[in-house]
Amino acid sequence: MRKLLKRPDLGIIIGCLFIFALFTLYDPAQWFNWGTVSNIGEYTAILGLLAIGQSFVVLIREIDLSVGSVYGIVGIAFVGLENNNVSDVLAFVLAMLLALLVGLVNAALVIRGKLSSMIVTLGGLFFYRGLIYIITHGAVTGVPQAVRQNWFAQLLGGHSLRIQNGFLLLLILGFLCAVTLHETRFGNHLLALGGDPASAESRGVPLGKVRTIAFALCSLFAGLSAIVTLTNDPETSVSLGTGMELEAIAAVVVGGTLLTGGRGTMLGTILGSFFLTAVRSEIIALGAPPSWYVSFVGIALLTLVTINTLLLKRLRISG
């Protein structure tokens, strides 16, 4: 019990139970409809993958505002390669290498350039979005129909037992990342860096290496999220991923990860993604204009952060 109360993600666990109960009582027909579940699963996977990557960066007191544009450019690179008869596995590998490169550039600018990650990745947000327009001249096509039937595209974008593979991928990778965060030396170093960089450094934690891996993971997850999106839903445009960086950060923070670093869980991040997605779906189902969702994200953010802060204070006082 005491262990449960100390969890950083307690707020979002309660939040998810709350909306689950609310929607069950209020709108069961809509809520327990397979179409709804399926939609929520799909978008939770997309947002969740982005948010898991973002968690690594937020946990070390940094932020990555470039992920929406990285999501866009990696997705468009993937589609572009496929349309030029590059095999899908190779297209995937090349697109992910692009994501890795972006992450390494972000890390290098932050570490070697001693620039704030907010500035570096804000630059990235504009730069990569602009690059998409320059390369595509504003016109992009989707993933070719033939390619979508391939085993590889099905692996990322298809279904297993009616459940989206993307969602299963989110659960598997979320689990692996949680284990990495809490059960490995790297995870311990990451949390230490997020909690107190000077102390971590004095104990010999290789700060540069940990930061580099965190930024690389963040971009890789953004790229993976884009490819999962496109193998499932071939529609695409030059605005692919616009605004998703803020949604991902919101999911991370709603999920109980402190923006000041060092405290958070992957479960919280996944639940945060689910929470935002489920409520969006319900808002649309209720016939409210989808734009209400944007205001809702703001309200959810403030409410859950307040709850988390209160829980944390209580914890610090009671010991």
């Binding site: 490995t184 030396r185 909690g195 107190d196 971590a200 104990r203 010999g204």
Partner: peptide
Amino acid sequence: GLCDNLSVGRNYFLGREPVRRILGLPFL
């Protein structure tokens, strides 16, 4: 020297964490 967000045990070993291998992979 101490990271307030980490447990007493994790602070003790910070930077020289002992690992044991499960399926060949190193875990704390």
